[in-house]
Design a protein around this nucleic acid. Structure first.
Lengths: 352, 352
DNA sequence: ACAAGTTGCTTAAACGTTTAACTAAATAAT
DNA sequence: ATTATTTAGTTAAACGTTTAAGCAACTTGT
């Protein structure tokens, strides 16, 4: 065996990669036996398994992922679609998905939709083309037509949604309790003595923003606070939107004494306007954001915000995917995993 | 042909995916002919090509990426390794790499090293295991041992480095002119009348930080400003480092009147300390960061910073990779593409 | 002692595509 | 008219792995 091995090591220097055939040749057994040995098949003796592993190690064998994926119909690749990666929330979700999946031998392919429906469709196409074993996605704001997502389902691979999901797709979803988060915020502001709480929110057509608005409305009622139409605004939650609508709010005859903004970027824009107009935060107007972006702790004053538990969302989404890998036929249903969110209270809402 | 086609469409409903064999059967030609037709081979008649394309469309054919990759030895996947994705610089570089490569039929697999050498090695292993056609990477701060990167080269696939590179690897590199950037900053500060310019930089062992330090030193000379040892600091450039070393600087007997910080996060920490100590920025101490992270335009005062041209870096890195795809044998040399950086002047260094 | 079961492999086909080598027919060149 | 060239394909092997089916050679049970 040693002669054979050293002979192969010499050949190896010239040739590119070691295959199971090379190992089989060294040990004078069949390639099939090697494959089984490496998969710890019960029909291979312990002695052979040890020998195979040893030679594989010596020859620096690496399984050809393409060949095994082709044969077994599994690529061990998972597609991840996010609106963008340069947000700490998505970046952290991705990192945790990767961590869980890598442990099980899966790799992830990340694509960014940039909040564009068209780019999202392209992403889905390329992921399907790459034969991913499943897709974990957070939908673009723009997306209303679900046909491309239906395409994923029709391919028979699992689809897991997180943060931005849609009930109509009837698949797994992982996210935080947006409705309860609004309650947390309103309760906190009410406890600080605020009476006129405004809400700069997202559009109702997006499920999560609808829930935040419902939560806001119901929580006002619970605390016996009036719901004023002029204090409830829907927008895209960009920095510019935050500026625009905060300006609108401070120009009201009857100003709010607190503003709950459904996104941190818009909250930042709102804060800029407040500072530019030398309105004291939080004493004149208190401010709360959503998402716990790192900059909320960096600006002056620091902005209170909701921590969305990105780590847990990433982990749970990955676990849901893995669940289906053990199932024979993938029959997905609407299955929501709702995590409790946490309100991080900072200077912008700590009344003195 | 129509009978054959409709028959196949019926079968399609039951079966999973269309293959070139299915197309071949419909048209009564060989699978090889179909393959060639789809690759626009000159030995196939125009008539056949059109027919093949038509049937492929009808049967909703999608090429099996695994099979073609296995056979042709190309996976059309490119690995991208970054220290992290939640920085606007890396996120934008990635987006531009993706844009260029998608157009040529490549997909990218993104992995994050989290600035950890160990995670970086794992990333390299999984990418090689996935049989990527090449790797585009920005090295972790920690990385000193280059053996894992040598492993990429030894596999015969191209390695392109950006931002954080190493001359010793003798591969392509795309980045900005760090040396000149320091000149831009020092010149700007000198023009504002600053006389004692400090530098909170990265560690000299990392090439880019070494260049920034060299640029700082040489630019001081050019403007006839003294180089004081106590004003030149090396660190990891985290927010905490920024705080720590700015505190050290303002406690000097002879305080600086300007601080050039080689990273935006550290610059932010530095700004926090200045504000906490009610030191007027920029009039008492002017501040310049590096990287043009979005928050530099969000904080008060806004922080001057260097725009690293992430779009261009991403595009050029992708182009370098594509260059090698047309070459027979990949023989890489040290080939640096150095882009001009741009100084964005904001409030933190605009003296009045 | 002999059927039945177990162990430890081997053989061969399959996954879907690409490609080198070949061929038959049509066309052009001498 | 004969040979050379071009055209438009075909055939078959290959990429590296997995896996169903098969088959000796043992071990058990009765």
């Amino acid at each position: 065996m040693f002669k054979r091995l050293s002979k192969y090591i010499n050949i190896l220097i010239k040739t590119k990669k070691t295959t199971i055939k090379d190992i089989a040749n060294v040990l004078n057994i069949s390639a099939a036996a090697v494959s089984k040995a490496l998969h710890n098949d019960s029909r291979i003796s312990e002695k052979t398994k040890i020998a195979v592993r040893e030679v594989a190690e010596k020859l620096n064998y690496q399984r050809n992922h393409l060949a095994s994926a082709l044969r077994s119909g599994k690529s061990y690749l998972v597609g991840v679609i996010v609106p963008r990666t340069n947000s700490s929330f998505f970046s952290s979700v991705i990192q945790n998905i990767e961590e869980v999946l890598n442990k099980k031998g899966y790799n992830i392919i990340i694509t960014q939709s940039n909040e564009s429906y068209k780019k999202e469709c392209d992403s889905i196409d390329t992921l399907l083309f790459t034969q991913v074993d499943g897709i974990i996605a957070s939908m673009a704001n723009e997306t209303v037509d679900l046909s491309f997502y239906e395409k994923i389902k029709s391919k028979g691979i699992p689809l897991i949604l997180f943060d931005r999901g849609e009930n109509d797709l009837n698949v797994d979803y992982v996210g935080i309790d947006d409705y309860a988060s609004s309650h947390l915020i309103v309760k906190h502001l009410a406890e600080q003595g605020c009476k006129r709480i405004a809400h700069i929110g997202g559009y109702k057509r997006t499920r999560i923003f609808n829930n935040r608005i419902r939560g806001y409305i119901d929580a006002l009622k619970e605390h016996n606070l009036p719901l004023e139409e002029e204090l409830l605004i829907e927008c895209n939650l960009t920095i510019e939107d935050g500026r625009k609508y905060m300006l609108q709010l401070i120009n009201l005859q009857d100003k709010p004494d607190a503003v709950y903004v459904a996104g941190d970027y818009a909250a930042l824009g709102a804060l800029q306007i407040l500072k530019e107009n030398t309105i004291k935060v939080p004493n004149e107007i208190a401010l709360v954001g959503f998402g716990n972006e790192p900059f909320t702790a960096m600006v002056t004053p620091t902005i209170s915000s909701i921590n969305q538990h990105s780590e847990e969302i990433g982990k749970q989404a990955a676990e849901r995917f893995l669940f289906y890998q053990n199932e024979k036929n993938i029959k997905q249903n609407l299955n929501k995993i709702i995590l409790n969110a946490e309100l991080i209270i900072r200077d912008s809402s700590k009344l003195t």
